[in-house]
């Protein structure tokens, strides 16, 4: 929502990270944690997307994710059963937006960026 408060805004509680985008800095810290052997960057983002998508849809077996490395990071293309399209998009795109936010955070935890395309 608005970051342009003219009225006094209440202080947000402090998080471990404090930067504006909330994406870059922590990656190194998390990455320094014992990383699963030879996990390609983006593995977490993909795993999170797969978990979320299969948990939401009626036909988890139809969930497929293809991964491409784009200029700005990972592009994850999500395929679901046609009857599940409405579920993964949600009212006014809310579910799709929430998936993108969560997947991006997962990608940031391993030092990369990720976008999600829902393809039919």
């Amino acid at each position: 929502m608005s970051d342009l408060f003219e009225s006094p805004s209440f202080p947000e509680p402090e998080l471990e990270e404090d930067d504006e985008d909330g994406l870059e800095d922590e990656a190194s810290e998390v990455g320094a944690a014992p990383a699963e052997a030879n996990r390609a960057a983006g593995g977490r983002a993909r795993a999170v997307l797969e978990h979320v998508a299969t948990s939401i849809v009626d036909e988890p077996d139809a969930v497929e994710i293809s991964t491409e490395r784009g200029r700005a990071g990972l592009v994850l293309s999500l395929h679901v059963a046609p009857s599940d399209m409405g579920r993964v998009i949600g009212k006014r795109g809310r579910v799709a937006q929430a998936m993108r936010t969560l997947v991006r955070a997962a990608a940031a935890s391993e030092g990369t960026d990720a976008t999600v395309d829902i393809v039919d």
Binding site: E12, G22, T101, A105
Partner: peptide, 10 residues
């Protein structure tokens, strides 16, 4: 922190 995100967005 990453699971919370800026202003709790995540």
């Amino acid at each position: 922190g990453l699971l919370i995100g800026q202003r709790g967005r995540t």
